[in-house]
């Protein structure tokens, strides 16, 4: 990331580490997120995304590391941080037995907002939930729950939005609308850090970071991340790909062979060695080879296996 003035950094942490007992769940994570940026936080299950986010918003005290969030020290000024951060937890965290309106009113009260009633009305209006405001929040469908949760996080006009897998289990249309909303918010100057497992969502972020086993393995724009990986990819289409996959796997110069539907991605980190490795199969008339850009998923899988190879597992 190019040098930025510190006052433009909404999140700036170094060496962030969290241990539970003798298990290190997050180790030495450095993150810098600029104002108005949408930062995607990716990583497999249990890699430490939620734990990192909790440290950023003052819910967990880091075992080591330091830094600031919206200009406040993440260890000392947790109260100030909490006032200006909107945190959407991984699980739906509104009260299912309270109505939509009661939920919003409760949150507005907690933040000590002025003009609560108007703010709640506005939020309901914007969500299009005015007619259903007296329904219990638990009765909403998954997509609506996510929208309501997001609305309740931004009602107090935070400067930073932390979204932990906000679109898990939501249909594609609702997801798209959700992301349109996130972009609109970012356009309005809000900084967003969002964790996700979806590659298409990663592509919609200004920058992304990939965390695995508690370590931030790579960071940058999607293009940067792909380029930095140095991964060269060929895709091959044709009949009987399964036996081909078996024969390609493990050949010198080939780092991985991953099936994507009717296509096989063959990737390696050295252009020439990869070309040599696939040469014997290039002339097969039943196969169609094309040189393709590496996908994010290729990069992540590659990063993961590389990290595993180094024995990075705790």
């Amino acid at each position: 990331m190019a040098e930025v003035a510190p006052e433009d950094l909404v999140i700036d942490v170094r060496g962030l580490t969290k241990r539970f007992g003798d298990r290190t769940v997050v180790r030495d994570v450095a993150l810098r997120v600029r104002r108005g940026e949408i930062f995607g936080f990716l990583g497999p299950n249990g890699s430490g995304k939620t734990t990192t986010i909790r440290m950023l918003c003052g819910l967990l005290e880091p075992s080591a590391g330091e830094g600031q969030c919206i200009g406040y020290d993440i260890r000392r000024d947790t109260a100030a941080i909490k006032r200006q951060v909107g945190y959407m937890t991984q699980r739906f965290s509104l009260y299912e037995d309270l109505t939509i309106r009661e939920n919003l009113a409760f949150i507005a009260r907690l933040y000590g907002m002025r003009g609560r009633r108007a703010a709640v009305d506005r939020t309901l209006e914007r969500l299009g939930l005015t007619a259903r405001q007296h329904q219990p929040a638990g009765q909403l469908s998954g997509g609506w729950k996510q929208r309501l949760a997001l609305a309740s996080c931004v009602m107090h006009e935070p400067k930073l939005l932390l979204l932990d897998e906000p679109t898990a289990g939501v249909d594609p249309k609702a997801r798209r609308e959700f992301w349109d909303e996130i972009h609109a918010l970012a356009h309005g100057g809000l900084t967003v850090l969002v964790s996700t497992h979806y590659m298409d969502e990663a592509e919609r972020c200004h920058r992304i970071g990939y965390i695995f086993n508690g370590r931030l393995l790579t960071e940058g724009s999607v293009a940067d991340v792909v380029r930095d990986s140095g991964l060269v990819t060929w895709s091959v289409e044709g009949a009987s790909l399964a036996p081909l996959r078996a024969r390609l796997s493990g050949r010198a110069g080939i780092d991985m062979v991953v099936p994507f539907g009717a296509v096989l991605h063959v990737a390696g980190s050295d252009e020439a060695r990869l070309a040599a490795a696939i040469a014997p199969f290039r002339d097969d008339p039943l196969l169609r080879w094309t040189r393709s850009p590496a996908t994010l998923e290729d990069v992540f899988i590659r990063l993961m296996s590389a990290a595993n190879g180094e024995g990075a597992r705790p």
């Binding site: 918003c57 819910l59 945190y87 937890t89 965290s93 299912e96 949150i107």
Partner: peptide, 13 residues
């Protein structure tokens, strides 16, 4: 258990 405590404690309360 319902996960609402986490969200609650992330507010200024």
């Amino acid at each position: 258990e319902r996960g609402t405590m986490e969200a609650l404690l992330a507010t200024p309360v």
